[in-house]
Amino acid sequence: MTSSLLANLLTEPPGVAHYMTVGAVMFVCGAMCMATKRNALGVLMGIELVLNGANLNFIAFGSKYLDNGGPQLGLDGSLIALFVIVLAAAEAAVALAIALNFYNNHDSIDVDRADQLQG
């Protein structure tokens, strides 16, 4: 099944599943970035990747060019994607301010050192 899918990719239109696969790769990369990076800004980049992976799914479900009779989001998909982009911008601004504050106070950007609340 997988081989026939790959062969069809050049001659048949991509579907929702293909977009979801790309989204899944971005999502997993982002989640692993959040888990493994020690630099606070690296964690922030992981969040951006996760949001984009999710956004790709909204776009795919909202697009009629990828539709094969399944349930469709229609315009809702692109509108939600817009809200995600806007909220991601807001989130990045606040997270960056927090990271810079942390850097100012602790002279470090290593998230492993943000452990003062452990007592």
Partner: peptide, 30 residues
């Protein structure tokens, strides 16, 4: 890295399998 790779690989395989498991999502007729 090891823990992340295991968890990430499991999540990725799950998501991809889920994406291709629904026939309506596989792509429209040309």
């Amino acid at each position: 890295w090891v823990i992340g790779m295991i968890a990430g690989g499991a999540l990725l395989s799950l998501l991809t399998a889920a994406a291709f498991s629904v026939p309506e999502w596989r792509g429209p007729e040309r």
